[in-house]
Amino acid sequence: MQTYWGKTTQKIWGCSGGYVASSNAFPIKTFRELVEKTAQLSYLNKDHLLFYRGQNSDYRNRGGSSTFYPSIYRGDYLQQREVNNRFDILDGACKSLTDLFVDQKVEGYKELKRKKYIQWSVLQHYEVCATPLLDFTHSLRVACSFALQENKSENAYIFVFGLPYITNRISVNSEHDLVNIRLLSICPPHALRPYFQEGYVAGTEDITTTYDSKSELDFNNRLIAKFEIPNSDDFWGKSFDQIPKDSLYPNNDPIWELTKEIKDLADRELKAGDLGDFLKLWSELEETILNEVNKRTDRFMSVREAIRLLYDQEQITKELLNEIDRIRKFRNQVVHTPKKINPRMIQDYIFELERLNKEIKTTANN
């Protein structure tokens, strides 16, 4: 990728995203100037399609580089157990979204039911829960409006990314390990928000809970340039203006009303409190069981197979086997049919899991 940088029209050829991510943002005075700079960037990067993100701040990691992780991977020293928990929450939200679309016969429900990327896209764009996708826009005006919206700072930031050209509504590029989704093409027409925002979402292909290095999921490796714009009316000038919030988030959006139900459920039952504690304790139990089995065999096993092996080798009793299996079935119910779960039931299972964790660990240490 070619990067336009510096206070003059200097071309830095073959510049990596890491270099740009660790650099200071290039100052821009007006929207017209920003358009001119991105036009040069587009010309220099003929092999890539430019997308934009507008933010109030330039969020940097501990190494001083701008960072752009999909929400499901955010956080320093993210533990595997937490990643698994977040994907469990996502699975539950997908199931709830599909059920709602099917029940209400929302246009496009059959396709949404079949394709996880469409489910993830709707959940991401309507901010229901964390997903492996990151929001972009193809419109500079939209990006600037987001960056300046409810911004109390003197400046805002526009980030320019170079992604592979799109060939389909859901465009998978195996060469770059990227999937890019045009929301205008896959969202039902009743979903007004993506149409007003000219929205796209992108993620790393086929990577979910396991990855070699978390840094491979950071979109800063696709960053071409970052600009700092002033938070003032002078930035827009006489010829342009900011898109108001009620246009970016239009009222009477039927899909927003639907996803609100899921978000309320996720906030109340899936994200925090007892359910989160239950899923973490279950992940802890899985980890203990698999670690114990790994000492006994090199063969890869599912958790269910590992539990059965411990029983066959008389490491756990029949009663313990039945208890673990009963909780495992409840865990699957939590993930796949969260609406049917009574929050009071979760507290009972938490107490049982805490006891089982201690018992399994004691057994493993003997």
Rank of each mutant, 00 (worst) to 15 (best):
M1V: 00
W5H: 13
G6Y: 05
G6A: 12
G6I: 01
S16G: 08
S16V: 10
S22E: 09
A25V: 14
F31Q: 05
A39K: 11
L41E: 08
F51E: 02
S57H: 10
G63T: 13
S65R: 13
S66R: 13
T67K: 01
Y69L: 09
Y73M: 03
R86T: 02
F101A: 06
K113N: 07
K116H: 11
Y117W: 14
Q119M: 13
W120Q: 15
H138M: 11
H138P: 00
R141C: 08
S153E: 15
S153W: 00
A156M: 12
F159P: 00
T167C: 09
S171C: 09
N173Y: 05
S174F: 05
C187M: 15
H190C: 14
P194V: 09
V201D: 01
I207W: 02
T209E: 11
Y211R: 11
S213Q: 12
S215L: 10
E216D: 09
R222Y: 14
R222H: 15
K226T: 13
F227G: 04
F227C: 03
G237Q: 10
D241P: 03
I243D: 06
S247L: 06
Y249W: 04
Y249G: 02
L258R: 07
T259N: 12
K263A: 09
L265E: 10
L265P: 01
E269S: 12
L270H: 05
L270Y: 05
K271D: 06
L281S: 11
L285F: 10
T288F: 02
N294A: 05
E319R: 10
I327A: 06
R328Y: 09
K329R: 14
F330D: 03
F330P: 00
V335S: 15
T337A: 06
K340R: 02
P343R: 10
M345L: 09
I346T: 15
Y349L: 08
E359P: 00
T362I: 04
